[in-house]
Design a protein around this nucleic acid. Structure first.
Lengths: 225, 225
DNA sequence: ACCTGAACACCGTTCAAGT
DNA sequence: ACCTGAACACCGTTCAAGT
């Protein structure tokens, strides 16, 4: 036997006793950010941690439970939303913080869209947003509907950004609509606006544009209902 | 040998010569609608069609190409958008048609969010929406940004509806935020609005609410820019 | 051109067994 | 309680071979 069967824990390899739910989740998130979400599986994560695949089932009941924990951990990295101040700024803080987080951790999008939105961090962010809307003066039903509308905006933009980055082909893409070889006779407006779509699509500016539209409509509702 | 090695094509089993790209795609969509998107794989689809798995590679280069074709086929089922009339009604027609289609075929959501938005049907719908916005009087940049905002709304609502239906647990769910056993001290507003969230979340009414907000803001922009 | 089974390199998870 | 390898029932896809 020339090599020790169990290598000593070195950099990037964790001491055996140090394996915890937290360290597993942190490693999974780092792996997703580094190598993409598709590179993380129970088996590959276990290998990265230097343990057998089945070891992870000591800490999590299933892959879904592990991924839910990763999502919650990632969401906890978003800045704590302000509890007072003008309602509009508070909504912008929650939404902007989440959008920035999703740009930092694009792999998080998969975890958000694949499973029901639940967990303590989701509850914390929902609480902050609903409180801001109630303080603005909206009744319960309206506050709930506005909140869901804002969640749509966040989820939609997250998907959109992910799709754009997943497009690695050399085809000309205008706002994820491939316009290369698009017959101008059939789709004149798409072709005419290809540059505008390519320039405006995605990112914080596009996110703010849509958010501003919703907030403007809400301000109008409050002043003359 | 007691059984003929190749069963005669019966109901639900296709004659061998009839295998085409179209029939494969239609079967895949029907299978997704019936058994859920996770039940469809190259192997299970081939079995449903009564052929070997590798046969499908004669018609499609890969699973992604097959799924893109399924998406395009499903989108072609949405009603043709009106080419004239008031811009707002045209936008409502495109958005409402797509939302209804996604409610009819929930499994379509996966195909929409997992891959870049491309293909002839996407181009057709994009063309109709952009044309309506240009006819309304918006400049190129604004029309493009409004279009993307509306796509966010559609994608976000699609994800949201899917998440709601995927929640098969018995836990109390309020707008996909599980409020069961949620400490009222920490999340007072969520608990207070749990009923409102459960009542308003999802469906055509919620979709229309958000769309109305955006359209109201756009009307205001057009009258006093 | 159309269709095939065997094989490869993966999955998540169950199980029985070890410490 | 923590960790394990073997095994099971899956994937998508390559390959060489058949018609």
């Amino acid at each position: 036997v020339q090599e020790s069967p169990r290598p000593a824990p070195g950099p990037g390899r964790r001491a055996r006793g140090a394996l915890t739910r937290e360290s597993i989740v942190a490693t999974a998130l780092r792996m997703m950010d580094t190598s993409g979400p598709e590179a993380v599986s129970i088996r590959s994560l276990a290998e990265e941690l230097g343990v057998g695949a089945m070891t992870l089932y000591t800490y999590f009941r299933s892959k879904d439970e592990l991924y839910d924990a990763v999502r919650d951990h990632a969401l906890s990295l978003s800045p704590p939303p302000p509890a007072d101040g003008p309602w509009e700024e508070r909504v912008r803080a929650v939404m902007g913080g989440l959008h920035a987080l999703l740009l930092d951790h694009p792999s998080l999008v998969r975890l958000l869209v694949a499973r029901p939105l639940a967990g303590p961090e989701i509850a914390r962010l929902t609480e902050a947003q609903l409180a801001a809307l109630r303080d603005a003066g909206f009744d319960r039903a309206t506050a709930a509907s506005v909140h869901v509308t804002l969640v749509y905006h966040l989820l939609g933009s997250a998907i959109w950004e992910t799709q754009r980055h997943s497009e690695r082909s050399t085809a000309t893409v205008a706002g994820s609509v491939v316009v290369e070889a698009l017959p101008a006779g059939e789709y004149p407006t798409v072709v005419d606006l290809a540059d505008a779509l390519a320039r405006t699509s995605g990112g914080p500016a596009q996110f703010a544009f849509g958010l501003d539209l919703v907030l403007a409509a809400l301000r109008a509702r409050l002043t003359r209902p």
